[in-house]
Amino acid sequence: MASPTSLKLDDELKGRVQQLAEVRRRSSHWIMREAIAQYVEREEKREALRQQTLNAWDEFQVSGLHVTGDEVENWLSTWGTDDELPTPECHK
């Protein structure tokens, strides 16, 4: 269920939203909702990636297991070739 929310925009931004709405044949309301939805989705993905990164770092701190950048680059350089290497194994 949608509920009303007020939003204060400076005149310049409000004008830009209105101009875009006219060009896109949408309402200013639609443009703002779409912008907020896209922003929230992008930031949720960014936060999930940040959490995954922190979890991976914590796991590395405990286990010490890793793969070097050179090992990854060597592996990736073989992708799509007849001599494609298997995924490098983690080591200490």
Results as ranks from 00 to 15, higher is better:
residue 78 T to Y: 11
residue 3 S to R: 04
residue 37 A to G: 03
residue 22 E to K: 14
residue 61 Q to R: 15
residue 60 F to G: 04
residue 23 V to H: 10
residue 90 C to G: 12
residue 1 M to S: 13
residue 86 P to N: 03
residue 66 H to G: 00
residue 21 A to K: 01
residue 19 Q to A: 13
residue 60 F to Q: 12
residue 72 V to C: 03
residue 51 Q to Y: 02
residue 59 E to W: 07
residue 31 I to P: 00
residue 58 D to G: 05
residue 83 D to W: 05
residue 2 A to T: 14
residue 47 E to F: 11
residue 82 D to A: 13
residue 5 T to Q: 07
residue 79 W to C: 06
residue 35 A to V: 09
residue 24 R to K: 14
residue 29 H to D: 15
residue 63 S to V: 02
residue 21 A to E: 02
residue 65 L to N: 14
residue 35 A to G: 13
residue 35 A to H: 08
residue 20 L to F: 12
residue 18 Q to P: 01
residue 13 L to Q: 07
residue 18 Q to G: 00
residue 59 E to K: 04
residue 27 S to W: 05
residue 48 A to Y: 07
residue 3 S to E: 06
residue 87 T to K: 09
residue 45 K to P: 01
residue 32 M to D: 03
residue 59 E to I: 06
residue 23 V to M: 08
residue 7 L to V: 15
residue 74 N to P: 00
residue 14 K to G: 01
residue 35 A to I: 10
residue 86 P to Y: 02
residue 92 K to H: 11
residue 67 V to A: 03
residue 37 A to S: 06
residue 52 Q to I: 06
residue 77 S to G: 08
residue 28 S to A: 15
residue 26 R to N: 15
residue 17 V to M: 03
residue 89 E to I: 13
residue 88 P to G: 00
residue 26 R to I: 12
residue 51 Q to K: 06
residue 25 R to P: 01
residue 41 E to F: 10
residue 87 T to S: 03
residue 86 P to G: 04
residue 46 R to F: 01
residue 37 A to P: 02
residue 17 V to P: 01
residue 70 D to K: 00
residue 83 D to R: 05
residue 28 S to Y: 02
residue 15 G to I: 10
residue 90 C to Q: 11
residue 7 L to I: 14
residue 38 Q to T: 09
residue 54 L to P: 01
residue 76 L to T: 09
residue 53 T to P: 02
residue 53 T to W: 06
residue 87 T to P: 01
residue 22 E to G: 13
residue 29 H to S: 15
residue 58 D to M: 09
residue 25 R to G: 10
residue 42 R to F: 02
residue 1 M to H: 12
residue 24 R to V: 05
residue 64 G to V: 05
residue 38 Q to H: 14
residue 6 S to E: 09
residue 34 E to V: 11
residue 55 N to E: 13
residue 1 M to E: 07
residue 32 M to W: 04
